[in-house]
Design a protein around this nucleic acid. Sequence first.
DNA 1: ATCATTACTTACTAAAAAGTAGAACAAATT
DNA 2: AATTTGTTCTACTTTTTAGTAAGTAATGAT
Lengths: 114, 114
Amino acid sequence: MKETKIGDFEETLLLLVGILDKEAYAFKIAEEFESQTSRAVSIGAVHSTLNRLTEKGFLESKMGESTAERGGRRKRIYTITASGQRTLQESRDFKIALWNQFPAFAGGKLNFNI
Amino acid sequence: MKETKIGDFEETLLLLVGILDKEAYAFKIAEEFESQTSRAVSIGAVHSTLNRLTEKGFLESKMGESTAERGGRRKRIYTITASGQRTLQESRDFKIALWNQFPAFAGGKLNFNI
DNA sequence: ATCATTACTTACTAAAAAGTAGAACAAATT
DNA sequence: AATTTGTTCTACTTTTTAGTAAGTAATGAT
C-alpha cells in the first residue's frame, strides 16, 4: 500500500487530538494514549508522530498561552485539518464496510448508517 | 508502537480472508482487494503479506485440490486462526471506542453494543 | 541563583510494513 | 511439444512508521 495515508499509531494520535480538543498538546496526548491503551509511549515518539502528521497536512498547531503553573511552559495545541478529518472519515467508512461483510462481525451488531 | 500487532494492509487482507471464506486464496484475495479499494496490488505483495500474517500466527493455510480447469494449479486456502480473530476483534473494539469519543463521529451514528 | 518540572524540538536510528522480481508449477489449448 | 493461463513461492529492496537521544525553554519553588 504505497499510497497509504496514515499508520496505525498516527491514526490513533489523530483521533486523540480530536477527542482532546482544546487540550490537545503533546504531553496530554501521550497521557491519554497511555490511559486508553495501557501501553507506554515515549513523549519523543508522540512529538515525532505529531510532526509527521503535520507534514502530511492532517494536523496544524499553534502555541497556546503560558499558564501560571509550575513548569507552565507554553503548549503547542494541535487541531485536525479538513484533510485529516476526511482521512479519518474515509478510513472509518472503509473499515466498517469490511467488518460488515465479515460474517463473524456482521451479526447485526454494527450497522453503519450515515 | 513497537509492539504493533498488525499493519493496515495486513489487517485488510486478514479481513478479506474472513470475508472470502472457502475462496480465500492469494489471487482471489488480490482481486477482491482491488475491487473493494479500487487500488492496485501486486500479487507478490499479497503473498508476502499472507506469509507475514502466517508467521505472526494470524492465518493458517492448506493446499486445496487441483481443479480441472485451465491453469488449475492447486490453491493455497487461508483461514483465520483464533489469534487472528482475536486481533481483529480487539482492533475493532479499540477503534470503535475511540470513534465514539470523537465528537465529529459520535453524533449518535455508531453506537457500539455487543 | 539553582533546581525541579512541564514542555517542545530536531536530527537521527531502528523496526516493521509494503512491494518487487524472477522463477516455477500444473493443466488446457494450440 | 510449445504456449498460455492461473497460480504459488521466496529472497530481497524500498518506503514508511515508530522510537530514541540529547538538547532547549520557561516557570515556580527553594
